[in-house]
Computed example of a mutant assay.
Amino acid sequence: MSLLPKKKGKEQSALAQKTLWKSIKSNKVLLLMMIPGVIYFTVFCYGPMYGVVLAFKDFHITDGILGSPWAGLRYFEQAFRDPYFWKTVFNTLIISFAKLIVGFPAPIIFAILINEMVFPRFKKVVQTFAYLPHFMSWVILGGIFFSLLSINGPINSILEFFGMEKIMFMGSKEYFRGVLVLSDVWKSFGWGSVLYFAAIAGIDQEMFEASKMDGANKIQNIIYIILPAIFPVICINLILSLSGILNGGFDQVFNLYSESVYEVADIIDTYVYRLGLKNMQYSLSTAIGLFKSAIGLIMIVVVNFIVKKVGGKENALW
């Protein structure tokens, strides 16, 4: 009698293995397509995570990672006691939340407006011009914005024409954050609308026909049909956006800022860059980067929990 459970367990294990191999064979093309992505994340995301140990070591280049002595939480304490570190955290939060508030609704609104356009050719032209900035690096865009917003650039020439004073947009603490937010929205809103536009295209057209028969107007269609249909996509994008709230946009800030605006524009990523690559304080910069990653992990878990409670499990990531 004692052998029966073992026999049954072996049969279940054999059946599970058979089902697994059958599933692999039936999806072999999709699995092969996954290989480049798996290799990419393994090499560039999971492999470098070994370097996180630097945050807990008194690293010396001559000793290497394994040979350097352990430092415990010394570099975390050093970072938390540094007033300038908290200044960069504050700048990062201000810039990121401003980008989220202004930039998150922008692709949603754009996708809805594109969907309501009547002329297909004009729609394609608008979409093409909206997508174009996404494929331009911040090195190129930085040069463009420096030319446009310089003291003798076209923007200041227009202000001067209307009798207004010229503004040092790129060197002014008062205006620089606004430049960061608006330039980021301009670069990303077109590409960000692709997901929403695809979600809108998947809505059953019979719903619009039924609403038309009931006398619904465009605004009512948007409120009662389009927005509920794309709500799951909005929730997932919101979770991912809030999880990266401490990503102020290194490429953008690094190519646009200068010492004159460090006080309002220096974010965690640029601070870590200077500490690690310029000042060679590898352990301290790794500790700050690990702190930022930990906050991102906490944020994604918390926001996912809130979305699950408010919007339902089907709108959350897990």
Rank of each mutant, 00 (worst) to 15 (best):
S2G: 13
L3K: 14
L3Q: 13
K7A: 14
K8N: 08
Q12V: 15
A14P: 03
L15C: 11
Q17H: 07
K22A: 07
K22V: 05
K28H: 11
M34L: 15
P36E: 08
G37Q: 08
V38N: 06
V38F: 12
I39K: 11
Y40P: 06
Y40K: 09
F44S: 13
M49H: 08
V52C: 08
L54Q: 05
A55S: 13
F56R: 03
D58E: 14
H60A: 14
I61T: 13
L66A: 15
W70A: 13
L73N: 06
L73P: 02
E77C: 06
Q78P: 03
R81W: 09
Y84A: 06
V89Y: 00
F90D: 09
T92N: 03
F104A: 04
A106T: 04
P107H: 04
L113F: 15
E116Q: 13
E116M: 12
M117R: 07
V118F: 11
F119V: 13
F122I: 14
V125Q: 10
Q127H: 12
L132D: 07
V139L: 14
G142L: 03
G143F: 12
I144P: 04
F145S: 00
F146C: 11
F146S: 15
L149W: 01
S150M: 05
S150F: 06
G153P: 03
G153D: 04
I155S: 03
E160L: 11
F162E: 07
I167M: 05
M168Y: 11
M168H: 12
G171Y: 06
G171P: 02
S172Q: 05
K173L: 07
K173W: 07
E174N: 11
E174M: 10
F176A: 01
F176Q: 00
R177N: 09
R177Y: 10
G178Q: 09
V179L: 11
V179W: 02
V185H: 04
S188G: 11
F189Y: 11
G190T: 06
W191V: 04
G192E: 01
S193W: 00
E206F: 09
F208V: 06
A210S: 13
D214E: 15
N217R: 09
Y224E: 08
I226V: 15
P228T: 05
N237V: 04
L242Y: 02
S243Y: 02
I245P: 01
I245H: 04
G248W: 00
G248N: 02
G249I: 00
Q252M: 14
F254T: 05
N255W: 05
L256G: 00
V261G: 01
A265P: 01
D266W: 02
I268Y: 01
D269Y: 02
D269L: 04
T270V: 11
Y271A: 05
Y271N: 02
Y273P: 01
S285E: 03
K292L: 09
A294Y: 12
G296K: 02
V301Y: 12
V302P: 10
V303E: 01
N304G: 08
I306F: 08
K308M: 11
K309M: 13
K309E: 07
V310P: 05
V310Q: 10
G311V: 05
G311D: 06
G311K: 06
K313L: 07
N315P: 06
A316L: 05
A316Y: 02
L317V: 14
